[in-house]
C-alpha cells in the first residue's frame, strides 16, 4: 500500500510516494539516490545506516519512511558546508579512522550525534558520575560509539578521531 510523504534530506525538500513497508534507509538509497547511509545488517545491529533524524542520530533501517513523514534528515553526504568538510569528517581523515570505508558514513553521523549529546551533558553507561557533565574520555567515546561496528576494526583510530572533533587534545 502506498503513502505520499515529504522529507527534507540534506537540506533539500523531497516529496514522494512510498510503499508503507519502505524503511528510511531504502527510501534514501533506492528512491532518492543518496547512497551515503549503508545497508549492513538491516536489523539495527551494525549502525552503518545511521543518519541524523530531526537532529538526533538514529538507525534508518529500523525507521519506516511513512512514520517519519515531514522529517528532516541529514546524512554524511550533507554534513559538509560550502566545500568545507565537517570537523568530524576532517578528524576521520586526519586520524586515518577507516580502512574499507563502508561503515564510515554511519560512524560519522553517529559521532556528530555523540558530540551533541555530550554538549548537552547526557550521561552514558561509561560515565563515572551519572549527574556530572561527561568528558570525552576514551571509555566514553568507545561506549557511545558501540552501536557502530567496523569489521576492519579501525576503532583504535576512530576513538581519537571523535575525541579530536570534540576538541580533546590527544
Amino acid at each position: 500500500m502506498d503513502a505520499e510523504i515529504s522529507l527534507t534530506v540534506d537540506g533539500v525538500a523531497r516529496r514522494l510516494t512510498v510503499d508503507t513497508r519502505t524503511t528510511l534507509l531504502d527510501t534514501l538509497r533506492e528512491r532518492l539516490g543518496n547512497c551515503s547511509p549503508k545497508k549492513g545488517c538491516d536489523h539495527g545491529q551494525c549502525g552503518a545506516c545511521t543518519v541524523l533524524l530531526d537532529g538526533e542520530r538514529a538507525l534508518s533501517c529500523l525507521a519506516l519512511a511513512v512514520a517519519h513523514d515531514g522529517a528532516e534528515i541529514t546524512t554524511a553526504d550533507g554534513l559538509a558546508r560550502g566545500g568545507e568538510l565537517h570537523p568530524v569528517q576532517q578528524a576521520f581523515l586526519d586520524r586515518d579512522a577507516f580502512q574499507c570505508g563502508y561503515c564510515t558514513p554511519g560512524q560519522i553521523c553517529s559521532a556528530v550525534g555523540v558530540l551533541a549529546e555530550v554538549d548537552r551533558g547526557w550521561p552514558s553507561h561509561a560515565s563515572p558520575d551519572l549527574v556530572a557533565d561527561p568528558e570525552l574520555s576514551h571509555d566514553e567515546v568507545a561506549e557511545r560509539m558501540s552501536g557502530n561496528l567496523c569489521r576492519c576494526a579501525a576503532y583504535v583510530n576512530i576513538v581519537p578521531a571523535v575525541q579530536q572533533a570534540g576538541g580533546v587534545q590527544a
Binding site: 549502525g47 538514529a58 560515565s127
Partner: peptide, 16 residues
Amino acid sequence: LAQALLAGATGQLRNL
C-alpha cells in the same frame, strides 16, 4: 532507571 536505560541498546536505538 537512568543506569538501566543507559545499559541497554545504543545511542541510535535509545533516540528512537
